[in-house]
């Protein structure tokens, strides 16, 4: 009985603490386990800050999609950045994946945009030739430092995301 109690204790301590120690060691999070990255990234007046924007393009006419996110903009962008686009670092504290690759990135982007275009069609009867993702650089008070630049586009005809950026070493 005592042996059972001892093993029970060890088992419960392991079950409760091990996932926490794992996320702390790797610097990741998956609810309810977190490395608590809140307010951790350094910010000063020289830090590069950006705002994301989604635009639908149909026959050359652009539509700002910020009113069609179906949720508050901060939720939408955080979801997109944390779970879909992902950090430039392979391991990011905003998700639980431990690897990153161009293939995984494309798969996530395509899945996201397929769902999003289906949502726009169903809920708002909107269809586009492509959806552009742009970013602009701002200061801490959202004053523009660099106007919007396109990161890439999701092309509806072949359901794939194409990045504008071509790395030099590729």
């Amino acid at each position: 009985m005592n042996l059972l109690k001892k093993w029970y204790k060890h088992l419960i301590v392991f079950v409760v603490l091990a996932p926490n120690l794992f996320v702390v060691a790797f610097g990741i999070e998956s609810f309810p386990f977190t490395c608590a990255p809140m307010f951790g990234h350094y910010i000063d007046n020289n830090t590069n800050l950006y705002i994301f924007k989604f635009e639908g393009v149909r026959k050359g006419i652009k539509t700002d999609l910020s009113n069609y996110y179906n949720k508050p903009e901060d939720c939408f962008i955080r979801h997109f950045f944390s779970k879909v686009y992902g950090s430039a670092e392979a391991i990011s504290p905003f998700t639980h994946k431990l690897t990153e690759s161009p293939e995984a990135f494309n798969q996530r982007m395509n899945a996201f945009f397929e769902d999003y275009t289906a949502f726009l069609k169903k809920e708002h009867q909107m269809t586009f030739d492509r959806i552009d993702i742009s970013v602009k650089s701002v200061d801490q008070n959202r004053n523009v430092l660099m106007d919007y630049k396109i990161l890439g586009s999701f092309i509806s005809s072949n359901s794939s995301y194409v990045s504008v950026y071509k790395p030099k070493n590729k």
Binding site: P37, M38, F39, G40, H41, I43, N46, T47, N48, L49, Y50, I51, F52, K53, S66, N67, P72, E73, D74, I77, R78, F81, S82, Y85, G86, S87, A88, E89, S92, P93, F94, P102, F105, V135, S137, V138, R142, L151, G152, S163, Y165, P167, K168, N169, K170
Partner: peptide, 30 residues
């Protein structure tokens, strides 16, 4: 105005690590 969420770019990140974009986004703000 749809500008509540900021994303932080790491200007010091070496360019060989940036294959998604030239900005090196590393975190969202809270």
């Amino acid at each position: 105005q749809g500008e509540a969420q900021l994303v932080i770019g790491d200007a010091t990140m070496p360019s060989n690590k940036k294959w998604k974009d030239p900005f090196g986004f590393v975190a969202h703000t809270y």
